[in-house]
């Protein structure tokens, strides 16, 4: 229990750190921070609205520490200001709409690539030195050293433009109204397949390499020899003796990989014009919509911390040693 409490305290500190970066960045940049953050709003903002925005971001007539506390208060009450480009839409609402698409895309891609990558890595380790191992390792190196931008663009070129198998943008046919109809859901699936396949390729290599190396390190252990000596089948020793134990460090790699997934999905969404968080962030960067950019950092940090915590929880379930502490 104290393990989880300590983790929670740490995550809270990390979240405050991200908010602190948001707070100080406009203030340490040369020039007037208010001017910088809200300049692109132009005449659309009334004085009243501008003042509300200033209050949210802690631009008040007070000492710095009071400004800081004001900002933290807005963050923790869920007030991230309003988007300047899509005024007067609140940042939280804008991001929440996009989050649904990102979580769907990312969640599926992560689960699929984690499962496949781990199995492939285990297989490569089990058959290490064989041609199968070489093929899996080389593909894994390729997948984890080629930039997501490149993989996304090439996939879009081949399957979106050359072969024309999949649509090249949007989450669903824009002519259709969102509804629980077979037609709409089918359209969502058709539009989501290519970005998801791309993310899968981006992610699978990392998981495979991690699993392979963890498992190779375990194969010399006595209990593996024991399992074999008992005359258990190859598959059983591989999956239930070796892979099962090699999975634990892979799980912590998964926690760290969530940040990667976020980054990867960000780029992939931009390339495929998919309406998730990444695309919202991209539009915000183009319009220099600072409240949205800052909100995005907080949401993504939050997402990363939550998934880290879930991994911590599963760690406690997987590793009995942690339960006693």
């Amino acid at each position: 229990m104290s393990f989880l409490l300590r983790r929670l305290a740490f995550y809270l500190a990390a979240f405050i750190a991200a908010a602190t970066i948001n707070f100080f960045l406009p203030r340490v940049m040369p020039g007037d921070p208010i001017q910088m953050m809200f300049a692109s709003a132009g005449s659309e903002l009334s004085l009243e609205n501008l003042n509300a925005l200033k209050l949210t971001f802690g631009f008040i007539e007070a000492p710095l520490w009071q400004q800081y506390l004001t900002y933290l208060q807005s963050v923790f009450t869920g007030d991230l200001g309003v988007s300047i480009k899509y005024f007067p839409l609140p940042v939280t609402e804008l991001l929440a709409r996009a989050l649904v698409w990102t979580v769907g895309l990312m969640g599926l891609a992560t689960i699929l690539s984690f499962t496949c990558g781990t199995l492939l890595g285990a297989l490569a380790a089990w058959r290490r030195g064989t041609r199968l191992d070489t093929i899996i390792s080389m593909s894994a190196i390729f997948s984890s050293s080629v930039p997501a931008v490149v993989i996304s663009l090439v996939m879009l070129f081949i399957f979106g433009y050359q072969l024309g198998w999949f649509p090249s943008g949007y989450a669903a046919d824009p002519m259709l109204d969102p509804a629980f109809s077979a037609q709409y859901i089918g359209s969502v699936i058709r539009h989501g397949t290519l970005p998801m396949l791309t993310l899968f390729i981006v992610l699978v290599g990392g998981f495979a390499v991690t699993m392979r190396n963890n498992m190779i390190n375990l194969l010399g252990e006595d209990y593996i020899v024991m399992g074999r000596a008992k005359g258990l089948g190859e598959g059983r020793v591989m999956l239930w003796y070796a892979a099962r134990n090699a999975l634990l460090p892979t799980f912590s790699a998964l926690a760290i990989a969530i940040g990667t997934v976020l980054g990867g999905s960000l780029v992939t969404e931009v390339v495929f014009n998919y309406p998730g968080l990444g695309n919202v962030l991209y539009q915000a960067i183009l319009a220099r919509d600072y409240p949205v950019i800052q909100g995005q950092l907080l949401i993504m940090t939050g997402a990363m911390l939550v998934s880290n915590f879930i991994v911590d929880l599963s760690y406690v379930l997987l590793d009995p040693r942690l339960r006693k502490a």
């Binding site: 970066i21 976020l262 980054g263 962030l281 950092l297 940090t301």
Partner: peptide, 15 residues
């Protein structure tokens, strides 16, 4: 390590 790298870089670069 737990603050996601790319979003952080994007915020920095945007400012």
């Amino acid at each position: 390590l737990v603050v996601p790298n790319l979003p952080l870089l994007l915020v920095l670069a945007a400012f």
